[in-house]
């Protein structure tokens, strides 16, 4: 049995007290321990932002990349060694502004890995700028008269891109978040978890309090069927995306089909002289 603390490297996070990101870090550590993922097989990949610091607090392999590019790095790792459990994470700016196209393409590829969006609807690290997920009217340093452009709807966008797993969590609902992350890691294919993770310093609108009032918990609805894509779309529209739980999972997802069973990094790589000559003869 591994314990939650086994996945912590005891470095004190630089996050502001009360930041929603603490809970995501902990949920990930609890999920890893419940799944008993060997530390050496877990790779945490993160982007740049307050959120991006997460990989630096995990006792596992960790790759803190560049802004918006956690997904390409994470996919490269998984394609290189499919025996690893790869969890990417990053802010809403990371995944839906600068890295948006990687998000959509990662969804298309359906590589067996998990992506946790630490969504606070603001840029925390740059000290309070608008995000493409900020609500209209949201006042920040870069939108002093209020944000004008309508926000991206992560759920609708994810599902319409063909996602095979989409769930939402809330930093204040730790146990639900742990369960969701466990399901996401167990899912065969690309799983995206959008976590409402309040920024207590730069987002005074979408606060813990606010979310508690707004969020609908799908698990409490007995009739909710997470395998029904149409139903998932309807729910996202009806709740304006403000719901938590497993929103959609395609049951028959197998993940991207790989060409062989051995991880690339462990293949027998020798090419014989005979084989080499055959390759050369094609040029004669």
């Amino acid at each position: 049995m591994s314990a939650t603390k086994d996945y912590s490297n005891n470095v004190n996070p630089t996050w502001c007290p009360g930041c929603g990101h603490f809970s995501i870090l902990r949920a990930l550590q609890i999920a890893a321990s419940r799944l008993e993922i060997p530390k050496e097989s877990l790779v945490s990949v993160s982007g740049i932002g307050c959120s991006g610091r997460l990989s630096g607090y995990m006792s596992s392999y960790g790759f803190h990349g560049i802004h918006g590019r956690s997904l390409p790095i994470a996919q490269g790792i998984k394609l290189s060694n499919k025996d690893l459990t790869v969890v990417a994470s990053g802010g809403d700016g990371d995944g839906f502004a600068i890295g948006l196209s990687h998000t959509l393409h990662a969804i298309r590829r359906n590589i067996d890995m998990t992506y946790v969006v630490m969504n606070n609807q603001v840029y925390g690290l740059t000290k309070g700028h608008t995000s493409p997920l900020s609500d209209v009217g949201f006042v920040t340093k870069s939108t002093p008269y209020g944000a004008i452009d309508s926000p991206i709807r992560p759920g609708i966008l994810t599902l319409s891109s063909g996602a095979t797993f989409f769930a939402q969590g809330f930093s204040a609902f730790q146990e639900e978040l742990v369960e969701i992350i466990i399901k996401a890691i167990q899912h065969k294919g690309f799983s995206l978890v959008n976590v409402f993770s309040p920024c207590v310093t730069y987002n005074k609108v979408n606060t813990y309090q606010w979310f508690r009032h707004q969020l609908v918990n799908l698990q409490e609805d007995e009739n909710y069927n997470p395998n029904d894509l149409q139903g998932a779309f309807n729910t996202l529209l009806n709740t304006n995306g403000l719901c938590t739980g497993l929103v959609y999972q395609r049951v028959d997802s197998e993940g991207r089909s790989e060409t062989n069973d051995t991880p690339l990094s462990k293949l027998d790589l020798k090419i014989t002289e005979e084989e080499f000559n055959r390759l050369m003869n094609a040029f004669k």
Binding site: V43, I66, R69, I73, A74, G76, L79, S80, S101, L264
Partner: peptide, 22 residues
Amino acid sequence: QVEDEIAAVNMVIGASYAGTRA
């Protein structure tokens, strides 16, 4: 074939980090 060169270079970095020559 990936979405752009930014993805390409970062994917290759990931693959190489995990041990495959890329």
